[in-house]
Design a protein around this nucleic acid. Sequence first.
RNA 1: GCUCCCUUCGUCUAGCGGUCCAGGACGCCGCCCUCUCAAGGCGGAAACACGAGUUCGAUUCUCGUAGGGAGCGCCA
Length: 473
Amino acid sequence: METINVRTRFAPSPTGNLHVGGARTALFCYLQARAVKGVFILRIEDTDLERSTPESVQAILDGMRWLGLDYDEGPYYQTKRFGRYAEVVAALLEDGKAYHCYCSKERIDALREEQMKAGVKPRYDGHCRDDAEPVKGVKPVVRFRNPLEGDVIFDDLVRGRISISNGELDDLVIARPDGSPTYNFTVVVDDMDMGVTLVIRGDDHINNTPRQINIYRALGAGLPEFAHVPMILGGDGARLSKRHGAVGVLQYRDDGYLPQALLNYLVRLGWSHGDQEIFSLQEMIDKFDIRDVNRKASAFNTEKLDWLNQQYMKNLPAGEVAQHLAWYFERAGIDPAPGPSLADLVSVQADRVKTLREMTDQSRVFYENFNEYDAGAARKHLRPVAEQPLRAIGGRLADLAKWDPERLNEAVRITAEELGVGMGKIAQPLRVALTGTAISPSIDKTLWLAGRERSLARIRRALEYVMARAAAN
RNA sequence: GCUCCCUUCGUCUAGCGGUCCAGGACGCCGCCCUCUCAAGGCGGAAACACGAGUUCGAUUCUCGUAGGGAGCGCCA
């Protein structure tokens, strides 16, 4: 595997958005290719015309790009390769390695039902396998002539040796009456034509592998290596589905996660490197080996993703995080121009929130005016006793030479000392005055982000509120 | 039903016969810090599914049992 040009591929079918399970498979394919300086191919398996949609194709492409999983070849589309599949089917037919089958769906269904009832594995009985009579008016399907005897054995890079008897397999349909090819056939032709040397895919395909291997052999093609990675389950241990909420990669983007964080979370699902939790993309590439992947399905845990996301928000350069944040601001309709730089904002907010979306929501107040005070916060902190502290700090701030966190902190501290009260007596009313709520960054940082003009105006407004309230009593 | 596969704290995992009365991380609990919320520091509770073997010795090897997953399409 490490000696010659490794070629991996990610081959999703565009019947929905790129979900986290697929994204992790794509990540593994990507990492393995990069780790050995191989080639990573993207192929869209869109032979199911009924369920494939252009929107899904776009969602997959967008998801890949957002994650930064760039591919070296593709995207290839199976729908553009129908001519090639027909050619291979014809060759197989010619060689007697496939045959026409005229059995009706009704017959097949009845057969299956019978077999299930008899307690055996349902499979095609080979009715048309040998010299079947063409049935007038029936367009036949093409079936692959699977070997009757022997076992198919392969050494899966993550599962180890897997063996299944040909007696368990049947003659699968490789082309429908209209000539369109089926999945198990197209993958083989594509992987062969595209020179794929390592097939990494979900372990829901493990049962398909033996029959695909038989097709490779019939085609006289060399076998790629296989690595079947376990699935990702929902937080409740059940198979991941829409009822688990966010399953699409782009949903995580919309919810405020950094692509680095999601990638980091995903790579640690089923893979590890000692006790290390945080991996840059480069570290993943350097340390990843598909053979180290676990066999067990793992449950998706949003709390840990949240933690990772915060780690990234805190530790990435603020300017880099700010670039992502700008996207959320735009989406939320916030103009960043009248407020602090987004990098400054990130440096203050990163360790207080889990997502960029939360950061956006909690930062609006530094860019736009708020309409009213949070009722509970105002009741508790904007009381008549707050008048003196607010006046004192307001006066001191107005004269402050330079508006930076150090000086601001000092101003609040000195004011508290002069009034002979604790920091909280100044900070809390001030916090509510500045943000409308009792929750915000430390008071010096809050002042800093709000800026001089805005802060002074809001202190005046709070004083009016306090006095009006006093007068009302 | 049949075939294939899986099984260490709630979750993600380390462990590749003795170093394990099982280590790390998230979460949880407690304490500290503190102008709110966080972040941070310190500490704590928490797991080898079960039963037989093999072995001087099994979390680690083998076989069963139980539980779970996937597949059995003219879907991919």
